[in-house]
Design a protein around this nucleic acid. Structure first.
Length: 270
DNA sequence: AAATTCTCCTGAAGGC
DNA sequence: TGCCTTCAGGAGAATT
């Protein structure tokens, strides 16, 4: 499931094939996603040059002259670059075609999105209330300490709340907390400033490493050329219930926090 | 206000 | 083998 590293991997993969290229055709095959793909998208986007491909949280922003295509991969979405005229299969929702290639959005579970805005995308309702990017300096221990003050929500739930920090989904929340030695269910208000500082460092570290590895391929995610990401093999707790902790050898446990699977070592994480 | 639950959807996996 | 049930999950909406 695409989290920040997978979306960033996708961005880096498609950018060279998209930036500075002109859209020759837009084909909506199956408009039903989280929200319908807007009918006017082909008229708005065809003929436009894509100036840049940026990422905000898990959204990809394809910036054209008159507006921006906002893409989200949901949990099963992927973007592939395919030769023009490549036959489409099930769950291929959208093609953005250029001279030599088509950018194809594939999303079986349809939690993704493809939207168009003529305004500043940062002001779009989906983006305007997002917290800081985890890899930017604004996300530091002072900020997290301020957010955590007086709250009793489980720290893992706070990390996965996009108002706190964006891009950290279930996989990387679990991994970050393991690296930081913090129990995922701990009430966030009671975690010391020093431990929050370590957590911030671990979040940045695990996200950077995952990006270097091309993201983690679990189930559906593939890169723009169809290759998998290789970070899945580096995961130390996610999906490893019953396996020995890589640090102490005790068995990894699984609990549910906010309906989400939370994996941890009860010896190493307190 | 903060925290929790619900909801969308479909493929995979497990049970019998 | 095959049908049935359960589960996974991002994130906005609804509810407590």
């Amino acid at each position: 499931m695409p989290e920040l590293p997978e979306v960033e991997t996708t961005r880096r993969g498609i950018a060279p094939h998209v930036e500075g290229h002109r859209v020759s055709e837009v084909v909506i095959r199956q408009p039903r996603l989280r929200w319908p793909i807007p009918d006017e998208l082909p008229i708005e986007l065809t003929g436009q040059w894509i100036n840049s491909v940026e990422r905000r949280a898990k959204y990809l922003l394809l910036q054209a002259n008159s507006g921006t295509l906002i893409l989200h991969l949901g949990m099963s979405g992927s973007l592939r670059l395919v030769p023009v005229q490549t036959p489409a299969g099930p769950h291929d929702h959208l093609d953005i075609c250029f001279e030599n290639r088509c950018l194809r959005l594939h999303d079986p579970r349809r939690f993704g999105a493809a939207l168009w805005t003529r305004a500043d995308p940062a002001q779009h309702p989906l983006l305007s209330k997002l917290g800081p990017e985890p890899l930017e300096d604004a996300f530091d221990s002072a900020y997290l300490h301020g957010v955590a003050q007086g709250r009793k929500v489980a720290i893992k739930n706070l990390l996965m709340d996009s108002k706190t920090v964006v891009g950290v989904g279930n996989i990387y929340a679990n991994e970050s907390l393991f690296r930081a030695g913090i129990h995922p269910g701990r009430a966030v208000g009671g975690v010391s400033r020093k431990r929050l500082e370590r957590l911030v460092a671990c979040i940045k570290q695990v996200l950077k490493q995952a990006i270097e590895q091309g993201g983690a391929t679990l189930r559906d995610f593939t890169r723009e050329d169809g290759r998998p990401g290789y970070f899945a093999q580096q995961l130390q707790v996610y999906g490893r219930e019953g396996e020995p902790c890589s640090n102490c050898g005790r068995l990894i446990k699984l609990i549910r926090l906010g309906q989400r699977a939370s994996y941890f070592c009860s010896h190493c994480q307190r």
